[in-house]
Write a protein that binds this DNA or RNA. Structure first.
Lengths: 199, 199, 199, 199
DNA sequence: AATGAATGAGTATTCATTCAT
DNA sequence: GATGAATGAATACTCATTCAT
């Protein structure tokens, strides 16, 4: 469809240049569609960008959701979720770039969209942690602010994804494991030689 | 001094609108100085932005560095470092915004400056972790990729800082403690009811 | 065509104010076209100016070339060439102004273009003189530096053209005759009462 | 004196960059004087330029005037005058550049100044020619428009001077002789092998 | 339905010129 | 008398956006 064609091009171009430096001209060229078409189908630049973000966010969420196996124990769920996330980042690099880097630049105009994605991700994590906690009979974790911990985890995962873009010689499984050792085991256990491993 | 006056204004405006949308006109107005003065003292827009980033990065590093008490055990060092970081974010909100959000937008032109800051931060954390690890006679941590873990921690801290901007009713100490419970104890210990607390 | 429309306006404005003082705004206004069109069709100010010069130079050369009747004796050829030149100056006053006065001002950036024109003119004259000389079996003239004489003649013709702009009550034929009496006969013959006249 | 110091610098800078591109900053720097001084002594940029032209024009006229030996026959007077002119051009290259090239660029603002110089030069030449003519009992020359011929001669001399700047391996005497052969003898005589030589 | 052609509005940057000292 | 510091005003250039076809 025309709409999809244009969105694909837009994501590519926004990813390459960022919101401001991306030109409608280049987008129309890459899409192989005239500029008036873009305006007719997707509205002004701002709308277009918003729609890019929304679509890519949905894609990513879906990918992660599919990765999580809810029949497994919480730690394994988290691990699989992280792997799915990293696979997505690897496969849809442009999507990731747009979501993570470019979406922040537009004066908070799109913070909403991105925050929505982030909240969703955070919700997923929170659920996991809380579940794990309650299973063990400890609601304590929530008091340490489940949301805040989830936010931190998401930030860590994102940051590591960025790092990965420049150190791509590591598998998604290893990457996820590293992160598990940080957030599941903590430095303290690591120091003690106590590591986490997928079972 | 004039230079400082201008840089302050520039940080404020860049923080508000981002690099591209910020206009030299607004900066000059906020600074209470005519535009030619800006060019004379700090050069073109790009230079100006670079100088903003460099100054704020230096400030932040200094603040964190001063917060860390190297005579304390590693976990306490980390905790104090985090607190210093959050105090800085709270006090110099604009600095933080510019460093974290806006610096990424300029086509990687300034990635260098920001990455430098980030590397410095990561180095500090790495040093702590490695120190802690070796004290216990365990080089293991390195195999989990010290750098990657440090990257993750920094990401987590940044992400939490962002979250904090919208949930400012928490003290920096609490915030740092939350993060310590994530990275030092890990979910596993938390679930077990094993929490980290400043001593 | 749009391109022609713009070039016409540009020549007019450059002729009036010179390269530096001419503003793209005025050109666009005179052309009855918006500024972006100028940039789109003809590029930046410098390109625009270069294109003006090139077009006018070509025009002028063509005009002169068409004026020369190569079947006539050398002196008549020269006379006809000069007439054609003055007719061109009279008809395209702006072209002449741009070529002669304004093209020199841009820091030698366009000296090339103009010098090319001048060389062409000089070549034509040189050819004539040398032809005349060799017909009479005398290569001597070249030894008096054909090029230098040609340069001088061109300079004389240009200077006279400028003078003419303020004393337009003289026909191109008369003007050309005056010049012939200078360069063909010389003061000496004139003093002797020996004048040149078209046959 | 301060005034002279500034004028010297101005001529140098105007000669290098032309009127528009020359900056008051550079002039003040070259003069070793602060900008307000320039304004105080010589007025605004336009005034300054006018004064440069006036001074250099006077210098040049004086130089030529001193070169002419009025006790000699007209052709020798002319030849000596031309030599003096070329010696001046060689020695005060900047003066010549400013007078000939740069003065034309300013939208006719300074045409007056330069034309004044030119008229003076033309007057000198006219006088010579007329004198020569009348001595021979022939008022004819005037009918060929003494002024126009003078204008042409001056143009030829200027043009040749410009050419000389790029072919400096010729003495001023030779240069003047070439020109004499053009304007005194004419192509016709040259073709006949009849050349002019200083006696 | 689709586009080539056109533009309004905005921004960085530069300099001649002048105060305050 | 002399200047460092400051600015008003001007200009090239770009790009999102829309008609006329």
């Amino acid at each position: 469809m025309r709409e999809r064609q244009i969105l694909d091009a837009a994501v590519e171009v926004f990813s390459r240049h960022g919101y401001h430096s991306a030109s409608m001209d280049e987008i129309s060229e890459v899409a192989g569609v005239s500029k008036p078409m873009i305006y007719s189908y997707l509205g002004a630049k701002e709308d277009l960008f918003a729609k890019c973000i929304r679509r890519e966010a949905a894609r990513m969420l879906e990918a992660v959701r599919q990765g999580v196996r809810s029949e497994l124990p919480p730690d394994m769920q988290l691990w699989h979720g992280l792997r799915a996330f990293y696979r997505f980042v690897a496969e849809y690099r442009d999507s990731w770039t747009v979501l993570h880097r470019q979406a922040l630049t537009v004066g908070g105009q799109f913070a909403g969209e991105v925050n929505l994605l982030r909240s969703r991700a955070i919700d997923m994590v929170s659920a996991l942690v809380v579940t794990a906690g309650t299973k063990k009979g400890l609601g304590q974790v929530a008091e340490f602010s489940g949301p805040a911990l989830a936010v931190s985890l998401v930030g860590a995962a994102e940051s590591l994804a960025d790092w990965w873009l420049d150190h791509s010689d590591v598998s998604d499984g290893v990457l996820a494991s590293w992160l598990m050792n940080l957030v599941w085991m903590g430095f303290n256990d690591l120091i003690e030689g106590d590591v986490w491993q997928p079972r």
